[in-house]
C-alpha cells in the first residue's frame, strides 16, 4: 500500500486567530480508513477542509507547507479546485440535503459537471445509493424531497451524493454526530465497504468510534499532530502520554 496523500509541514491559521494547524506532516494510505481524532479545536476539521480546498471559502490568514495528492500540490493557486472537489468528496457533520428530491440530490454533482445522459445518471443513483446502504429504503421514493427522510437516512443520501461523483478520496467530518446508534452502525459498515474502492478519512465523533473504524489513526491536539500510527496499536498501546490520557478519558 502506498500513500495517496502526503501532507508536508502544513501550518494554517484563520484570520480571527481560531483553530490552526502547526507543522503537520503525515502520509495517508490508499484504500484504508484513516481516522483523525482528538479534542475539539485540535485542527482535525481544518485539515479535512484543506484537502478539498473548502477552506478557500473562509478567511485564512497564513498557510505554509504543501499537500500532495498523487504527487500534485493541491494548495497551488493554479490547481483547478472544481476538479479537485470532484476527486475529494466530503460528508459534513450535519446532513444538509439540498432543497430538492433524493434523486436530484444524488445526481447534483454529476449534473454540475455536465453529465446529461439519463442512463448514466440513473446508473449513478442506484450504484451510489447501494454503496451508501440506503438504496432499499429509498428506491421507491426517489422523487420525494430529501429532507422528508430521517436524519440517518439523510446522512446516507449525503454520502451517496458524494459517491455518485466517483471520487478517489472521501472525507467525513463527524458524519454520525447527530445519528442514533443503528444509523451510526449502518454508516460505519458502509465505510468498511468504501475503503475497498476509496481512500477514506474520518473525523469520528467519539474515541470509541475512532477505535472501531480506524485502520490508521492520528491524534491531534491544539493544531499539532501528536501521534500517528496503525489503528490497533494506537488504541491498545499508545506511545505518547497525551494520547493515552485522551483515549483513557483523562481529559477531553
Amino acid at each position: 500500500m502506498n500513500n495517496k496523500i502526503l501532507i508536508e509541514n502544513l501550518s494554517l491559521q484563520y484570520s480571527d486567530g481560531t483553530e490552526s494547524l502547526r507543522g503537520v506532516s503525515m502520509g495517508i494510505r490508499q484504500n484504508a480508513v484513516t481516522v483523525l481524532f482528538g479534542p475539539a479545536g485540535g485542527g482535525k476539521s481544518t485539515l479535512l477542509r484543506c484537502l478539498n480546498r473548502l477552506n478557500d471559502l473562509t478567511e485564512v490568514r497564513a498557510s505554509s507547507g504543501q499537500i500532495l495528492i498523487d504527487g500534485e500540490n493541491i494548495l497551488d493557486p493554479k490547481v483547478d479546485v472544481v476538479a479537485l472537489r470532484r476527486k475529494v468528496g466530503m460528508v459534513f457533520a450535519r446532513p444538509v440535503p439540498l432543497p430538492m428530491s433524493i434523486r436530484e440530490n444524488v445526481i447534483y454533482g454529476l449534473e454540475m459537471s455536465g453529465e446529461k445522459r439519463k442512463s448514466k445518471l440513473d446508473e449513478a443513483v442506484e450504484r451510489s445509493l447501494k454503496l451508501a446502504a440506503i438504496w432499499d429504503e429509498v428506491k421507491d421514493r426517489l422523487n420525494d424531497p430529501a429532507n422528508a427522510l430521517s436524519g440517518g437516512q439523510q446522512q446516507r443520501v449525503c454520502l451517496a451524493r458524494v459517491l455518485a461523483l466517483q471520487p478517489e478520496i472521501v472525507l467525513l467530518d463527524e458524519p454520525t454526530s447527530g445519528l442514533d446508534p443503528i444509523s451510526t452502525g449502518k454508516v460505519e459498515a458502509a465505510l468498511q465497504e468504501l475503503k475497498k474502492e476509496y481512500t477514506v478519512i474520518l473525523v469520528p465523533h467519539s474515541v470509541q468510534q475512532a477505535a472501531r473504524t480506524a485502520d490508521h489513526a492520528a491524534f491531534f491536539l491544539q493544531g499539532e499532530l501528536i501521534e500517528y500510527d496503525d489503528g490497533k496499536k494506537m488504541f491498545t498501546t499508545p506511545k505518547e502520554k497525551k494520547t493515552e490520557d485522551y483515549i483513557m478519558g483523562r481529559f477531553g
Binding site: L57, A83, R85, L98, M112
Partner: peptide
Amino acid sequence: PQAFRTVSISLGATRWQTIRRIVLKE
C-alpha cells in the same frame, strides 16, 4: 442557508452554478 452553498461547492459546483441552481432558486 450558508450550508447549501458549502455543500454545493463541495460537490464540485462552481460558485456561479451554486448561485444559479441553489441560491437564486430558493
